[in-house]
Design a protein around this nucleic acid. Sequence first.
DNA 1: CGAGCTTTTGAAGAACGTCAAGAGTTGTGG
DNA 2: CCACAACTCTTGACGTTCTTCAAAAGCTCG
Lengths: 234, 234
Amino acid sequence: MANLRRRDVLPTGEAEMLEALHLRKADFAKGEEIVADGSRPHSSCLLEEGLAARSVVRANGSRQLTALHIGGDFVDLHGLTLREMDHGVVALTACKAVFVRHEEIRTITERAPHLTRLLWLLTTVDAAIQRRMTTLMGRHTPLERLGHLLCEMYVRKEAVGLAQEQQFKLPVSQAVLADLLGLSVVHTNRIVKDLRATGLVSWHQHNVRIHDFPKLARVSGFDAAYLSFRCEPR
Amino acid sequence: MANLRRRDVLPTGEAEMLEALHLRKADFAKGEEIVADGSRPHSSCLLEEGLAARSVVRANGSRQLTALHIGGDFVDLHGLTLREMDHGVVALTACKAVFVRHEEIRTITERAPHLTRLLWLLTTVDAAIQRRMTTLMGRHTPLERLGHLLCEMYVRKEAVGLAQEQQFKLPVSQAVLADLLGLSVVHTNRIVKDLRATGLVSWHQHNVRIHDFPKLARVSGFDAAYLSFRCEPR
DNA sequence: CGAGCTTTTGAAGAACGTCAAGAGTTGTGG
DNA sequence: CCACAACTCTTGACGTTCTTCAAAAGCTCG
């Protein structure tokens, strides 16, 4: 709900509808598949804790992670309309998730138009993030891609209370990072090294600290506008 | 409407609601901006004729086209929820477009839940295409990217009656293609040459003919499932 | 303490971008 | 209908970036 309240006023009636949803809880271990590629789910996954990613695996074994999801993200809400998954969702760390039946979300579309538009918004924000990802892969250097990823993660985590004081956890191996950035593991390692050399971030274990956010944002071409963190009528 | 009917049954009442929308018509010349990056539109653009693209231009002048749109596409429907454009829309050829006021679409969300879900679907399909684009940029060779683009264009054009007999028009220069594929113009030219050399497509002037669609699809890793061209309850 | 994962580094080769120039095509005005 | 300019396509040469292969060092967890 924090993701909604950061973007529009949530009337009590709508908040109550969300509270009243029947949730099926499920835990996942690191590496486990949360939603299978090609499946036809009857419920959508809301991530409560942990880090997950959308994943496409090619026949030759190469993997592309197209998006990163954190606690509070309604991960596969678009499954409601798409019906068939065109990708999988995988747990990058141990995850706690809850599932909401599509039937109940459909009921929201019948009874709560404004709340419907807010849920719709969540999917269009995901799309905006995806669009940004495409430009990153196409026209940004690896260093910019990585810097941009860190900026985005900080802003998104901060919005739901998972980051503060320019610092957050990013518990992923460089192999995972490589699959996100579309690079080889070796090159990813060199880019991480380069980024550290700029002195803009400290990055030990899985703790990232951004020393000069405005400068990192400038260097990476990051501008938070596409995340739609602005409370206004939708 | 063809885009909706290819994906679910459209009851007469809903079709009538769409017919009743007030449309503002506008024509655009090749290269003209249809929607400005960073603007806050109060209406959404439905492309009737021509080819348009979502475009992000960087400070250094490099351009990334993140999506291609053809006649029948509801180009910036997501603007309804996002409010502020995180990219521009540009006419790649002369275009005819109509604009629908957000106010009227919001009325649809108040009165026609199923139609709302279908409009929502259009935006999630766009997102799925965008997701595919990301994997293309990240883990596919330039030849695969180009082949994939041709397969997708054929299937999408065929769905709205703009292609038949494995043949369609793609009236774009190789510079535009380069901005779509995230390559330099020179390299794009070499990839087009390579693709022609495979004998899988003829490509003269702006006419593309795919001689062996299944093989081109196999070579490029194309699978139309992500386009959700399947008529089922949504 | 040892096995397996992760990070790091080096070296060689393939892929891609940039620069440059020539050929072909299209559009426009006279 | 022609001439010219502007754009577009094509090719070569060269340098940079990125991948791949290989191996060593560090870390984590049983």
